[in-house]
């Protein structure tokens, strides 16, 4: 990176702010809760992805670091899925 992509950074910032406003807008229009939850989590994921890719320089850095990140992401999803799925005690049918 001989020349620093300052315009790109500012552009990403604009996108992040835009997505945040979109999130708030989704709440204000009062859509069905399932749609809202899915949409909001999806948008949060996209925002986090942009921060990681451009601000944390993953796009330009060693790929191995991205693997560490993806591993943590995998475990995070695993934890959320297993813990929610494994919360209720099973009721054996009688």
């Amino acid at each position: 990176m001989a020349k620093e992509p300052i315009n790109l950074y500012v552009g990403v910032w604009g996108l992040l702010v835009g997505l945040t406003i979109l999130e708030i807008f989704m709440v204000l229009v009062e859509m069905p809760i399932i749609l809202l939850i899915t949409g909001v989590l999806l948008l949060a994921g996209v925002k986090a992805g942009f921060v990681a890719l451009f601000y944390q320089h993953l796009k330009w850095d060693d790929v191995a670091i991205s693997w560490f990140y993806l591993m943590a992401l995998f475990f995070a999803l695993f934890i959320v899925m297993v813990w929610t799925g494994g919360s209720a005690v099973c009721q054996v049918e009688i």
């Binding site: 209720a88 005690v89 099973c90 009721q91 054996v92 009688i94």
Partner: peptide, 10 residues
């Protein structure tokens, strides 16, 4: 035996 939940064995 868990507080707040039921477990079944036979």
């Amino acid at each position: 035996a868990l507080p707040g939940a039921f477990n079944v064995i036979w």
